[in-house]
């Protein structure tokens, strides 16, 4: 029987990308009457298993240790391989977050097996698992397959739908012991700057509003932030804006920034250079607001408004406020 092991880091809760990986594993396993196991790694993980149960896990392997409270590549990788051995899984699914990407590669090396990174689709074909990996910054889709078992996959966040949460499932729970690898001490996480509560993470956002050089200066990003506020959206930027020092690199979308795939991407004052497009062209719906009708961004936009951002954006914000206001108020 095919068994898929998914990886869930626990830092107070299990993140959405890990639940997406679990949901996708469940869908794939169901198609072949297989099973899904999840390894929870962290400290004081409490009943993380009940969240995972809602998304359809059959077996939960818990690595709960004070040394696992903070992320550490060598120890987390040892934890994953311990669960891999205990579960008898053939495939390992890891969310392709910053931690997950290095962890998945490292685990694949420990298992000395193939690794399909940052995949955007998974399916059974010819009796085996195949994956789609965007290559050449999304200019090409490569379909890849493992030459044997096991195999490790990292799944791009926001690409795989969360399963419907269902109550009443009771997975088996197995606590595993953990031996700290000697090498763990050579790499210490000394400080974590937590995300600001108010900001929505770009790679997980459902809606993104991004600004480009067309905004003329950092002081004008207010119109972008206001629009984002009404939509509950994350704010992005082009490299130009980052290189000019208007915004932090953590906000950059594109080839040398973040690859995002929200349901709605609104590009304001952005020309649409190829290096920007490759970071956002898998968005479901793209809106472009630009005063130049020839701007390449219009070639990929579902809806475009040719006009001055300083007139159009506040008008869109106002129209949204009106449309989204609760009826009768």
């Amino acid at each position: 029987m095919t068994k898929i092991l998914t990886v869930a880091e626990f830092h107070g809760s299990v993140g959405k990308p890990a639940l997406e990986a679990l949901s996708e594993a469940r869908r794939l396993a169901d198609a072949v009457h297989g099973a899904v196991a999840t390894v929870v790694i962290g400290h004081a993980v409490g009943d993380a298993g009940s969240t995972l149960a809602k998304y359809g896990v059959d077996e939960v392997y818990v690595l709960d240790h004070v040394e696992l409270a903070n992320y550490n590549l060598a120890s987390y990788a040892s934890a994953v391989t311990a669960a891999f051995k205990a579960s008898g899984a053939e495939l390992v699914f890891v969310p392709a977050t910053t931690h997950g990407r290095e962890l998945a590669a490292y685990v694949a090396s420990m298992l000395d097996c193939g690794y399909a990174s940052d995949v955007t689709a998974l399916f059974w074909a010819n009796g085996r698992l195949e994956a789609v990996r965007p290559m050449y910054s999304g200019k090409v889709n490569g379909r890849v397959a493992f030459a044997g078992t096991p195999g490790v996959v990292s799944l791009r966040p926001n690409m795989f739908a969360l399963g419907e949460a269902v109550d009443g499932r009771t997975p088996s729970v197995h606590a595993l012991t953990f031996e700290l690898p000697a090498s763990a001490a050579r790499c210490r996480l000394v400080e974590t700057k937590a995300p600001q509560k108010s900001t929505v993470e770009l790679t997980e956002a459902r809606v993104i509003v991004s600004g480009g050089r067309g905004l003329k200066g950092p002081e004008h990003f207010g119109i972008i932030e206001e629009l984002a506020g009404v939509l509950g959206a994350a704010v992005g930027a082009t490299r130009m804006v980052v290189d000019l020092g208007w915004k932090d690199h953590s906000m950059q979308v594109g080839q040398t920034g973040k690859i995002v795939n929200p349901e709605l991407y609104i590009a304001v004052g952005i020309s649409g250079a190829i290096q920007h497009l490759v970071g956002m062209q898998t968005s479901k719906v793209i809106v472009a607001i630009n005063k130049d009708p020839e701007a390449p961004i219009f070639k990929v936009a579902n809806y475009g408004i040719v006009g001055d951002a300083f007139e159009v954006v506040p008008a869109v914000t106002a129209a949204l406020r009106e449309a989204l206001a609760p009826a009768g108020v």
């Binding site: 193939g114 690794y115 999304g138 200019k139 889709n141 379909r143 890849v144 030459a147 793209i286 070639k299």
Partner: peptide, 14 residues
């Protein structure tokens, strides 16, 4: 190789 590319194609153009 333990991972093989079995097919390449251009994604649908927007």
């Amino acid at each position: 190789p333990r991972l093989q590319v079995v097919h390449t194609e251009h994604p649908p153009q927007r």
